[in-house]
Structure formats: structure tokens, C-alpha cells
Write a protein that binds this DNA or RNA. Structure first.
Length: 887
RNA sequence: AGGCGUGUAGCUCAGGGGGAGAGCACUACCCUGACACGGUAGUGGUCAAGAGUUCAAAUCUCUUCACGCCUACCA
């Protein structure tokens, strides 16, 4: 075996062998309970980023664990067509050739996107393989493939027939750059510092041009779309003006002054220009007051003929010119700075232009109701549960979902309008002519929001609406693993769609993980240049080290700060486990240990040494912990348990304790220990496999008698009883070793100097331990002997000591002990002890504590007090003796 | 404006009513036959601040401060 695990060379080979074996797919006729995860589909043209890496590592850990546990495990992979994102990528590429999508026309453009997908679409799947993702590639899906498109159409038609989808003229968020409508949650907020313009709207019939109502606005260019000025009915300043007319400057159009509760008395001047065509709130006011809607700005962000001479100006230019003209006419009362948030497109950060237009909407409230209920009654659990509140809050205040997008790449809306009768037909099959009048039909040019199809993902990928075997066997799915940032976009939509269409909650648990940031907690972004490429990390440190890092940091926090130095640190752990295996495998002595099945249990062979019994017991405890953590999605704690067990207990103690046996002369003991080494190694790599699959699989391949793959072996079970006797005895041995080492170090005994520690005890258990295992310990302490002395013995003058529950330990160090040093040490210890004793005594004298605290806790305190009192007596004696010596 | 979250060792974080913890970093010593990507022993903290509940608070409650995030129709 090489000294290091060669991840660069071995990982891809191991993955290829797994994939060839067909073990990623569920086993035919499995008796296990289904355990199903659908992958959050990454953008088909995307590259693997840190978020995917975390997401899929956690999924793979769960999948590998459940597969080893014997469940009927399925992980469905796939990709999303990602409407706007993909279309934008392809348009960008075309732009380099000097081509616009309009030049190509719809069909040719869509063909180009498919071509793009064929070229780059496999990228993400290749990268997922490097992550070790053990998903069933035979079931890979794409949101635009035939089956899923059929599902989308079925849903659209069904919801339309149930009157849950409608077409309406409504104010929507429009991106003038992407030229499409956006759903509310696709609009992000940017904090800006702008100006608040106070503008005179002259009153009709006023005495002079200065007899005016002043309105405040950040968007003067929308004034050409104003159809009213609103004031609050409670506003004493303006009461008399209600019902009169005001004149819009620059175009001299008259609008009514109306009263509406919405207007804030405190803000600006308390008078609001109402532009129902270009503002969400104004639209609502317009609805209440039956105001007309004037479109002053077009889809590309230029002013329309409604703006008179300003027609044709771009929004921002128009604003400047309007402000200048107002000022020159003396109609600009003042300009004050204002900090506010403006809506921007989540794709391109262009400022959103609210527009009234005809779009398709999903009535969200009835769907949301079911989604709320399913989480309230626990059919689906969000983890951590704190997210449930966020989930409820959004769903309880949900607004109708605008699902049409003015793009070419996506699911075409299955609606046709008739050129003769004008009626709209929504249909599962493409209709040849209008079913009402046989007139000519034209299909709606829009496509559906990407999230419409991803909302169906848990069941559309399994074949729905067909009644497939997969659907029957694997739906509803078990766990969803995703970032909390898409609770609204995706999780809530899947819940709504799933419950409405299949009458079942699509998942049992939704595991929300943190968002990956850079080492300083900053969001990774190309513009900041702080993006860490997961593949680069994998190349450097190996997939296992990377996966271990992600798991170790996947706690309850919202941010995960990824520091490559930490990955390097866990790379050392991979090396450690590899070398532990190397030690075990090179010490087996070439004997035949039989088929591996015999090795994983029955460790209670009589010939087992104390260290063997101990590690066996510890393995049982750790196995139970690992299982519990996996069942509860505590990935960070899982990594922690494995790390410490492997390093601190398995390597630092067990392998060291066992060396004297292996290098000894007792052939029976050697044989038993070799066998146990092998058994425990198998358990260790099995426990760790879900997190670090590659190195553990490679080790498995080197184990004599190992059959097949570790990924297909069984996860350890903790069925036997622990061995408390072995644990406590090894505990005492560890204690002795640590005390001796500590004393040596404190008194600066040279490393080469052999010491001969003395253990003063009357405890028969300790005496027997010393008799049997003293020789094992001496090696670990750099001692030449370890002897017991009578309880009545006097401490040698040149010895340093420490008191323990089971007795006392003395380490004669010749001339190395400085009397003064020890006096100081003991004084310090005595002071601390006195403090602790006061505390414990106080507690035990307190009736409240004695009654309220659990009896074990009280008992523990009592025992500790006894222990401390004994120690205090010893220290006090020693101190007296030392002081005498010093004199 | 509301809601949520965070504040514990130099860094990243775990813990959570009765002894302040881990990893990395740091110091000293050690290349001992799995591993120097190693070993052993250590240094280091008013658990953000203040108040309250309690015999006992890093932990529970309240207030304050700082920093994040999310939602929202203040033009």
C-alpha cells in the first residue's frame, strides 16, 4: 500500500466501477422500505458551484447510508431548463457572432438552445460524478423532456379547467431588458439613493398658477400616466380639494383629486400622484376608484405618445428632461434626497418597470391552503423547524402567481386564441381549428415560468400523470435537501402542486442547509472574484476531504464559511484513516480470516484482549451515535463523531495499545487481536463510507476476503451490549498514561529518560490491570517499568505525584524535581479544589437543589465532593511534608 | 416597518441551568518500525453589554448594542 491515498488517480476509477456495477439503481424486488430523494435540478447549462456541492454531498450521504442500511433507495438526478437564465446565456453567445434572437426567429433560436444543451448540458452531470454522487443515472430527467412536458401541459389544462388558472390584465413586474414579465419573488430590491421631487400640480380654477397641489414623487417621468391625485381623507390640509381637478404639468391634462386611505399623511407632501399603469399601489387605488389606465412607458422602457413631446425618450433621459422643464417653468418646488429600495430584475438587475399587461396567473390561495395544512399537521417537516414560520408567513400572504413569460425557451402555454371569434382554447392536444367556430387558431406566444415545471419535479420525474410502477413505488419521496433560499421559489411550489395534483405531500422531510460563503462570510460572486470552484478544491484535496468539510460545517447556521485551509485540514484526516488501514492491513500476518461475513460480528471471542473488548464496545456506542445523527440529519455532528473516534480512540489509543500485543510472543493473543483489528477496521470504514466514500471503498478493496463493494455492504448495527467493564478499565489505564506523560513533561524529563512510575493503590481491579497490562502501558509512557506499591508506602522524596479516584501515582524523576515548583503546583491545585468544594457543599446544603435536581445529578455532586475532599486531604498532607523537606 | 437569525479561544464553530469545549493556528519537546499530512505535553476565553428569575445563568426572561438575512404597497 502506498503511503498516501492517491485521490487524483483513484477517485474516478472507483466511481467508474460503481457506476458500471449498476448499484446506484434501486435493487429489483427489494424488501426494504423506499427511501427516495429527487435532486434539486441544477440549470442545464450551469456549472457545479459550492451550493450544488453542499446540496449533493448531503444527499449522497443520506442515500449511501440508507442503501447500506438496506432500504430500497432511489436518487433521481436531472436538470432544469431554467428559462431566462439559459436563454440569456445563449443570447450572449449569439451576440458574439453578432446575431440577435429575432434574426433567427423562434424556431431556429430554440433549436440553437437545444444544440447548446447537447453541447454543455452533460457538464453538470460529469461534475456530480466527481463529487461521488451515487444517483441513478438511468433515471436522469430534464424539465423539458417529453414526459415532463406532458406533465406540465396536463397540469396547466387541469388547473385551467378547475378555474385555478386565468388570464387577466394586471399590473406585473416587467424587465425592459429581458422583455418579460417576472413573478413577484423574481424581483429583488436594491437600496438606492435617489431624489424625491416635489412638483406643483396647478389646481383647475385656481387664482394663479401658484395655486397648486404639490405632490412628491421619485419618478416624475411617470406623470404622463397619472389619472388622479390622491390625498388621505383625514388630511385637514386637503379636505376642501377633494373632488376638484388638478392639471398635470407639461401636458396640461386634468385629473381628479380623490381621497384614499392608502395615502400616508407623513410622507412627502401628503399628496400622491396616482399612476395605475406603472405602479403596483397606484394600480390598486385605480381599481378602487375606477380610474383609467394610461400606458406612458412601453415594454422597452421608452415613453409613449401619452407623453406628448417626450415620446421616444428612454425612462432615465425622460426623467432628466422632465425635471429640467419643470424647473424652468417654476413648477419644481424642491428636491430632497431619499434612500429607498427599487425593484430590479433578479437576472440582470435592470430596474423593473411595472406595467399593466395580459398575463396568465395561478390562483395561489387554494393551493397554499393545502401546503400550509400539510406542514401544520406534520405530514411534512421542515428541518430545522424554525423555517416553518417563514414558510407559513409567505403562504398565508401569498398573491396570485404570474406564470407567463415572454421568452422562447420553455414550455409553451397550451392556449390558443381564435382569430374569428376571439375565444381562447386551452387543450391537452394541439387543436387544429377553433372548437367554437372552426376559425383559425394562434397559439399563445408565451412560455411558462421555469418554476412551474420544477414545481412538479417530485412526481413528474417518476412518470406522472401516467400511473407508472416508479410512481407507485417511490412517490411520495422521503427527503428533500436544498438551500433555504428557495423555500418560496421551489419548496412551497412543490408542496402546493404536489398536494393539489397527487393529494399527497411530496416529501416527509425537507432538510434546509446553509448557504456557502467565502472564508470571510461574503457571498460568492463573480464580480467580487471570491468564487471558489468546487472542482478546483477536489483536484487539490480530493473529493473525500471536500465532502467531509462540507458535512462537518453543515450545522444549523445560515451561512457556511468555506475556507480551503479547512479542507486541507480534513485532507489530513483522510490520510490518517488511510494510514490506520495501512497499519491494520500490513499487520494481519497473511492468515486466512475466512469470509468477511464472519468478521463483522461475534467479536466476543474469549481470547480477546482488553483493548479489543474496549474498541468493540466503543464501536457499538459510536455506531448508535452515527445512526442517530444520520436519521436526524445532523451532518456536522456525524462528522464530528467519526473524526474523533477514528483519530482519538481508534488510532491514538487502540492501535497503540495493540502494538505490544502484536509484537509480543503470545501467538494466540496475536491471532485474536489481528482478527479484531480487521473487524474493527471494517466497521470504521463502513461507518465513514457515506461521508468519505472513495478512500473507504479503496480500503475495502484491499481487505482480504472482501466481496463486492463497500457501498453495497451493510451499515454497522449496534445490537450487542456495551462492555462497561472494558471501558472503565481502559479509562484507568489511559488515566495512568496521561498522568505519567504530563508529569514527565512538566518536570522536563528528557524524552530518552526511562522512568519507573509507581502506583499506590489497594484497589484489586487496578492491581490486576497493572499486572496484566502494565507492560503495554510502559511503551506509551516511555517508562521502563510500572509497579504497584502498598497503600501504606511513603512517596519517594524524588517523586512527583497525582491523586486519582483509584489511588495515587508517583513518578520518581531523580534530580529533576524542583521542590519549589511542586509546592507551587500543589498550592494552585489546592486553591482550585477549595473553591470547588465550597461550591459543591453549598449545593448539597441547599434543600431546593437536593429536591429539584435529578437524583443522579445530586448523587454525582455528592460523589464529586467526596472525591474532592479526599484529594484535598492528600494535597494538604503532601504540602506539609514538602514544606518540612524544604526547610 | 415587521419577522428571523447571529454574537463563546487569534480564526471557523459545537455546546447549552450545576466542572468553559473541538478543529485549525500558536508554544515546547520528539523523524519511536501506519501516518512529520505524525506523536506527546501545553498557552490561550468577564461565553457582546446591562438587568431580572434561581441556592446556581454562557445557558432561561427582558432591555441595549453590533452584524447578517428575509418579507413589505411609503410614493
Amino acid at each position: 500500500m502506498e503511503k498516501n491515498f492517491n485521490h487524483a488517480q483513484l477517485e474516478s476509477q472507483i466511481y467508474a466501477r460503481w457506476e458500471e456495477s449498476g448499484l446506484f439503481a434501486p435493487k429489483a424486488n427489494s424488501q426494504g422500505a423506499p427511501f427516495v430523494i429527487v435532486i434539486p435540478p441544477p440549470n442545464v447549462t450551469g456549472n457545479l458551484h459550492m451550493g450544488h456541492a453542499l446540496d449533493n454531498t448531503l444527499q449522497d450521504i443520506l442515500i449511501r447510508y440508507h442503501r447500506m442500511k438496506g432500504d430500497d433507495t432511489l436518487w433521481v438526478p436531472g436538470t432544469d431548463h431554467a428559462g431566462i437564465a439559459t436563454q440569456a446565456v445563449v443570447e450572449k453567445a449569439l451576440a458574439l457572432e453578432g446575431i440577435k434572437r429575432e434574426d433567427l426567429g423562434r424556431e431556429k433560436f430554440v433549436a440553437r438552445v437545444w444544440q447548446w444543451k447537447a453541447e454543455y448540458g452533460g457538464n453538470i452531470a460529469r461534475q456530480l460524478r466527481r463529487l461521488g454522487a451515487s444517483c441513478d443515472w438511468g433515471r436522469e430527467r430534464f424539465t423539458l423532456d417529453e414526459g415532463l412536458s406532458k406533465a406540465v401541459r396536463e397540469v396547466f389544462v387541469r388547473l385551467y379547467e378547475e378555474d385555478l388558472i386565468y388570464q387577466g390584465d394586471y399590473i406585473i413586474n416587467w424587465c425592459p431588458r429581458c422583455l418579460t414579465a417576472l413573478a413577484d419573488i423574481e424581483v429583488e430590491r436594491d437600496d438606492r439613493k435617489d431624489s424625491l421631487y416635489h412638483i406643483h400640480y396647478p389646481l383647475e380654477g385656481g387664482a394663479s398658477s401658484l395655486d397648486s397641489l404639490i405632490v412628491a414623487t421619485t419618478r416624475p417621468e411617470t406623470m404622463f400616466g397619472d389619472t388622479a391625485v390622491a390625498v388621505n381623507p383625514k388630511d385637514e390640509r386637503y379636505k376642501t380639494l377633494i373632488g376638484r381637478l388638478a392639471r398635470i404639468p407639461l401636458i396640461d391634462r386634468l385629473v381628479p383629486i380623490i381621497a384614499d386611505e392608502y395615502v400616508d399623511l407623513e410622507f412627502g407632501t401628503g399628496a400622491l400622484k396616482v399612476t395605475p399603469g406603472h405602479d403596483h399601489n397606484d394600480f390598486q387605488i385605480g381599481q378602487r376608484h375606477n380610474l383609467p389606465i394610461i400606458k406612458a412607458i412601453d415594454e422597452r422602457g421608452f415613453l409613449t405618445e401619452a407623453a406628448g413631446v417626450y415620446k421616444g425618450l428612454e425612462r432615465d433621459q425622460a426623467r432628466q428632461k422632465v425635471v429640467l422643464d419643470l424647473e424652468s417653468q417654476g413648477l419644481l418646488a424642491k428636491i430632497e434626497p431619499i434612500a429607498h429600495a427599487v425593484g430590479v430584475c433578479y437576472r440582470c438587475r435592470t430596474v423593473i418597470e411595472p406595467l399593466v399587461s395580459r398575463q396568465w396567473f395561478v390562483r395561489a390561495t387554494p393551493l397554499a391552503k393545502k401546503a400550509i395544512e400539510a406542514v401544520r399537521d406534520g405530514r411534512t417537516r421542515l428541518r430545522p423547524a424554525q423555517w416553518e414560520k417563514t414558510y407559513f408567513e409567505w403562504l398565508e400572504n401569498i398573491r396570485d402567481w404570474c406564470v407567463s413569460r415572454q421568452l422562447w425557451w420553455g414550455h409553451r402555454i397550451p392556449a390558443w386564441s381564435c382569430s374569428s371569434c376571439g375565444k381562447v382554447t386551452v387543450s391537452r392536444e394541439d387543436p387544429a381549428s377553433c372548437p367554437h367556430c372552426q376559425g383559425q387558431l394562434r397559439q399563445d406566444p408565451d412560455v411558462l415560468d421555469t418554476w412551474f415545471s420544477s414545481g412538479l419535479w417530485p412526481f413528474s420525474t417518476l412518470g406522472w400523470p401516467e400511473k407508472t410502477a416508479d410512481l407507485a413505488r417511490f412517490y411520495p419521496t422521503t427527503v428533500l435537501v436544498t438551500g433555504f433560499d428557495i423555500i418560496f421559489f421551489w419548496v412551497a411550489r412543490m408542496m402546493m402542486m404536489g398536494l393539489w395534483l397527487t393529494d399527497q405531500a411530496p416529501f416527509r422531510d425537507v432538510v434546509l442547509h446553509p448557504l456557502v460563503r467565502d472564508a470571510h462570510g461574503q457571498k460568492m460572486s463573480k464580480s467580487k472574484g471570491n468564487v471558489i470552484d468546487p472542482i478546483g478544491i477536489i483536484d487539490l484535496y480530493g473529493t473525500d476531504a471536500f465532502r467531509f468539510t462540507l458535512a462537518a460545517q453543515a450545522g444549523q447556521n445560515r451561512d457556511m464559511k468555506l475556507n480551503p485551509a479547512r479542507v486541507a485540514g480534513y485532507g489530513k484526516f483522510i490520510n490518517k484513516i488511510w494510514n490506520a488501514a495501512r497499519f491494520v492491513l500490513t499487520n494481519l500476518g497473511g492468515e486466512d480470516y475466512g469470509a468477511l461475513g464472519d468478521k463483522t460480528d461475534g467479536a466476543s471471542t474469549p481470547a480477546l484482549s482488553l483493548p479489543d473488548r474496549w474498541i468493540h464496545s466503543r464501536l457499538l456506542a459510536v455506531t448508535a451515535q452515527c445512526r442517530e445523527r444520520l436519521e436526524n440529519f445532523e451532518f456536522d455532528h456525524l462528522a464530528d463523531v467519526i473524526y474523533h473516534f477514528v483519530w482519538d480512540e481508534f488510532c491514538d489509543w487502540y492501535l497503540e495499545l495493540v502494538k505490544p500485543i502484536l509484537y509480543g510472543a503470545d501467538q494466540t493473543a496475536i491471532k485474536a487481536t489481528r482478527r479484531n483489528l480487521l473487524i474493527s477496521l471494517v466497521k470504521v470504514i463502513s461507518l465513514a463510507h457515506p461521508i468519505i466514500p472513495f478512500v473507504t471503498e479503496e480500503i475495502w478493496g484491499k481487505i482480504p476476503g472482501a466481496q463486492g463493494f463497500l457501498m453495497n455492504a451493510s451499515y454497522p448495527e449496534a445490537t450487542e451490549d456495551l462492555d462497561p467493564e472494558a471501558e472503565s478499565q481502559i479509562g484507568i489505564l489511559m488515566d495512568i498514561a496521561r498522568v505519567v506523560r504530563s508529569i514527565r513533561a512538566d518536570f522536563g524529563a528528557p524524552p530518552g529518560a526511562k522512568v519507573a512510575p509507581l502506583v499506590k493503590t489497594g484497589d484489586p481491579e487496578v492491581l490486576s490491570l497493572l499486572a496484566n497490562y502494565g507492560p503495554i502501558l510502559t511503551r506509551l509512557m516511555g517508562a521502563e517499568s510500572l509497579k504497584a506499591v502498598e497503600p501504606s508506602a511513603q512517596k519517594p522524596r524524588d517523586a512527583a505525584g497525582a491523586t486519582r479516584v483509584w489511588g495515587e501515582i508517583w513518578v520518581p524523576l531523580g534530580g529533576h524535581i524542583d521542590l519549589a515548583l511542586e509546592l507551587a503546583r500543589l498550592d494552585k491545585e489546592a486553591a482550585q479544589l477549595a473553591k470547588d468544594i465550597r461550591q459543591a457543599t453549598g449545593k448539597l446544603h441547599n434543600p431546593d437543589y437536593v429536591q429539584k435536581a435529578p437524583s443522579e445529578v445530586v448523587e454525582e455532586t455528592r460523589e464529586r465532593l467526596d472525591e474532592m475532599t479526599k484529594r484535598a486531604a492528600v494535597i494538604s498532607q503532601t504540602l506539609t511534608a514538602l514544606k518540612e523537606m524544604a526547610q
